[in-house]
């Protein structure tokens, strides 16, 4: 059985927990998030005929990304970088978090989620921002925890990437 640790990274209130909740049914209460700073969920997925169990670490988001504990990122095989499409500032946080993640675990696959895609009227990310990410070769998806758009897909894309890359961790 293949298991992968996946982290949900992103600024405060970008919708990480809602995305996870959309994706799995949890046994742990969300209060762990604010106390321990992490909530772990589990999702078995099957990609290209391979069964993988994702252990999803939902990391309590703060805009001050430096409070993210390195220990929480250790050992992850990939991550979802969540950006609130209606708040430009969360893009900067995501950039910084990506840098941090690379420092801690090296180059592991990740998928950027432009979340809250259902709120297009208050959209705050311009094409330039998206372009900047695409330029770096990042996988960017639009998602909405509300409608479910892009959620399954994001995890699937990430899983596939992790199975392909499968870099040695140590």
């Amino acid at each position: 059985m293949i298991q992968k640790k996946v982290c949900m990274l992103g600024g405060f209130a970008v919708g990480k927990t809602s995305l996870v909740a959309r994706y799995v049914s949890s046994i742990f209460s969300e209060k762990y998030l604010s106390t321990v700073g992490v909530k772990v969920d589990k999702k078995p997925v099957s990609v290209d005929g391979r069964d993988v169990t994702l252990m999803i670490w939902d990391i309590y988001g703060q805009d001050d990304f430096q409070t993210v504990q390195h220990s929480q990122l250790r050992g992850m095989s990939g991550y979802l970088l969540v950006i609130d499409g209606t708040r430009r500032a969360t893009l900067d946080t995501a950039m910084a978090l990506q840098t941090l993640a690379t420092e801690v675990v090296g180059d592991v696959p990740f998928v950027v989620l432009l979340n809250k895609s259902d709120l297009t009227s208050t959209w705050d990310i311009d094409d330039a921002g998206v372009f900047k990410m695409a330029e770096r070769g990042w996988r960017v998806l639009r998602s909405s925890a509300k409608t479910g758009e892009g959620v399954e897909e994001a995890f699937e894309v990430l899983t596939r990437a992790m199975l392909v890359d499968a870099p040695a961790q140590r």
Binding site: Q3, Y32, V36, G37, V38, K39, V40, D41, M55, Q69
Partner: peptide, 14 residues
């Protein structure tokens, strides 16, 4: 057990 394992690790880290 998978989730317990994860949470246990998270708590330890915490």
């Amino acid at each position: 057990a998978d989730m317990v394992s994860g949470m246990l690790t998270a708590i330890r880290d915490f």
